[in-house]
Design a protein around this nucleic acid. Structure first.
Lengths: 235, 235
DNA sequence: ATTGGTTGAATGGTATAACCAATTTGGAGG
DNA sequence: CCTCCAAATTGGTTATACCATTCAACCAAT
């Protein structure tokens, strides 16, 4: 049940390669990529395959082609969307961890606060049961999966589609780097303690108080995580 | 200086068409798209062009092709990223406004709180000057642009790349629907009053207090905006 | 010399056809 | 009924040609 390690596809190699050129700054914003025909020859792939790769980069907000003119490299810090985040963390930039966690806990606080307003008694019981199952979960892999599932259910409670989509991007980040998830599971007890705590907050139905508590608690947890990864840079 | 209204390109039409089919639910998650060859013929375009359109949808997390098997439609509520948001609001779903604003103000509060910790005296003076310019700005278009610029500068203060990227997505939404931005400018005075208020919060350098105030104020403003758009559904 | 339009090259967008690679399907053989 | 293999199905890639847009060089008229 290991990862597929099929021969990497040309389109993936091309997209990753060009993306790396842009993100590293070796191709500056405002510059233009070589013409497709030339670039394809350089990369040793067909022009159509190259175009497929370029389509991805365009969707990510890194480049903008213009017929007759060329393909200009955009200033991705001002044009790229959150979809770029998984690629950035995949590149291994550890300084992204702290900012990312900061964003995540702001969102999480909003989620819990919003859920406080909408949660029904039935939902409360279901989450309570789910939390009880998770606190006694010993298998770390299932604990991680349960964490995602619990969080997603919480998100769905808010009936906030934009937040749901943002959560999906977060989940994609975890998926792209298992080591990140592993780091979060370094001391599983703290994670296990989170679920009942959240249920307790939901039960009180005091949104703003819940928001502040979540912010406080997560800030403390995240600081530990950052410190731990700094000590062990193998993440 | 109007919009280019060149003949819409086949790849755009195809991508938008298929995306709409998926988002509207006419193609259910788990189902498979017709084979590329057949679908291309149906749409009256070439297979390569169709593949370019499919590449976008894949980047957005709507479909997942598998060689030999077919192209399966994903459950986009669980797989799509925030990059889908502009397309959703472009589709005209007004119920998205309130959730979106809720997310936006949670982020904004985090931005201001984070900026409180990092702002330098020099930055403070520059933002103060910028705010003073904006409060007396009468041209609505320039006010809107100044708003974006002011906000972006604030985001950059946080030195939080994930939040920067998220902000870019928000900016893309405004760009995709000018009417949304117009709605926010309906009573410009409230917007103009925001800039000095934020500078005042930065000056106090009390992050958590700033967060709560921003949340309170924006909640009030956003409620008015939602109510206004409900009254005038022309947004 | 400046302005204006024209022409041609450069470059991204689309079309057609063929072949490769992974998957699925269905029948032969046990 | 099960297993296994071969053919059909389907996405991935290559090759080639042509269309549409942009831009620069050039030329002519003022």
């Amino acid at each position: 049940m290991l990862k597929k390690l099929h021969t990497p596809r040309p389109v993936d190699l091309a997209a990753d390669g060009i993306r790396d050129e842009i993100l590293s700054g070796r191709i500056a914003p405002g510059e233009r990529l070589p013409p497709e025909r030339k670039l394809a020859e350089t990369l040793g792939i067909n022009r159509q395959t190259l175009r497929a790769a370029l389509a991805r980069l365009q969707a990510e907000g890194l480049v903008e082609p213009r017929q007759g003119s060329g393909i200009t490299v955009l200033n991705w810090r001002e044009t790229a969307g959150v979809s770029l985040l998984p690629h950035l963390v995949a590149a291994g930039d550890l300084t992204l961890l702290e900012p990312f966690l900061r964003l995540r806990r702001a969102i999480t606080a909003e989620i819990v606060a919003s859920a406080c307003k909408r949660v029904t008694d039935q939902e409360l019981d279901e989450r309570d049961q789910m939390a009880n199952t998770l606190v006694s979960e010993t298998d770390l892999d299932r604990l991680a999966k349960g964490n995602i599932a619990f969080s997603r259910r919480l998100v769905q409670l808010t009936e906030n589609l934009p937040i749901e989509l943002l959560f999906n991007t977060f989940a994609a980040i975890y998926a792209s780097r298992e080591d990140l998830q592993a780091a979060m599971l370094r001391n599983p007890d703290t994670l296990r303690a989170v679920f009942p705590a959240i249920v307790g907050l939901l039960r009180q139905r005091q949104p703003e108080m819940a928001r502040q508590i979540v912010l406080q608690v997560l800030t403390s947890l995240d600081e530990n995580l950052v410190a731990a990864t700094r000590a062990k840079p193998d993440l």
